[in-house]
Amino acid sequence: MSELMPVILALTILIGGVAGAAVLTWFERRLLGVWQDRYGPNRLGPFGIGQVAADMIKLLFKDDWVPPFADRMVFIFAPTAIVVAMMMGFAVVPFAPGMMIIDVNIGLLFFLGMTSLAVYSVLLGGLASNNKYALLGGLRSAAQMVSYEVFMGLSLIGVVMMSGSFSLVDIVEAQTDVWFCFSQILGLIVFIIAGIAESHRLPFDLPEAEHELTAGFHTEYGGMKFAMFMLGEYLGLMLISCMIVTLFFGGWHGPMLIGDWLPPFFWFSLKVFVVICFFVLLRAAIPRPRYDQLMSLGWKVMLPITLVNILVTGAVLLWIEGVA
């Protein structure tokens, strides 16, 4: 059984990830509706959940077309890359004690590596479309994602220093008493902002930016290839939420004063759900910054914050070690 566990879990993530992303498209629109004082899709089935099936049928039956001017091989490869990379990222997420595909001692770096590979999807999609709006979207995404990857990695150094390991299981276990969201509040803020930028969602969806670039890097995409891009984006959202919970909100542990009286997986999913709702709220509440504002926010605000965080965390850890 224990040998089969990773295989079963991998299949569950594969199916659950796709289904979850599909339901999220509906859930997000309903939630946005609530926060923007309107209904959102509410016609099909109870609460409009039939919209998910309607969207799926529509996407599946659309003509799977490759523009004649596009670079065919790269055009088809691009949307698959983001889905594969994001799915691979789930391999190291600890859902509950023993409930993960693989516990490697470089789990955190593996996650960073997979998110950094997802950049290619947007980049190559924009390039292969051979369309100037798509190219501009791709260029923006390259600069945005490479920059925010830097802060994303640096913001996690504090967590690694405090837990003394890159293994995600060790990081969750180090938070048994106190979650890292208090001591690593600066790291958490930077990680959330960098996470939104990495999954290029509103307010940082400059690679798409429909007001100025029609649809950015996926202007030429339609049907299932477009659906793959959306699947990748929602998988990215779920992956980032899982990582925020794992790294800063105690993973499978219950809240501190309440204790662990519910199954670990329940706590984990509840927290991930709350984080996803928070991301949707951000999308509803904050307008998109200009491109140069995004870049200067990154290099002039986020980089100093992360460096100060690392310095202070290191100093405090050494001080505690000296006292003890």
Binding site: L112, S116, L123, G126, M145, E149
Partner: peptide, 21 residues
């Protein structure tokens, strides 16, 4: 191995693609 992916495949090659774009 992790650094090879994060730095070479994930960052340096992105800049190469960027330049070619």
């Amino acid at each position: 191995a992790a650094l090879e992916i994060v730095i070479y495949a994930g960052a340096i090659m992105v800049l190469f693609v960027f330049v070619i774009m």
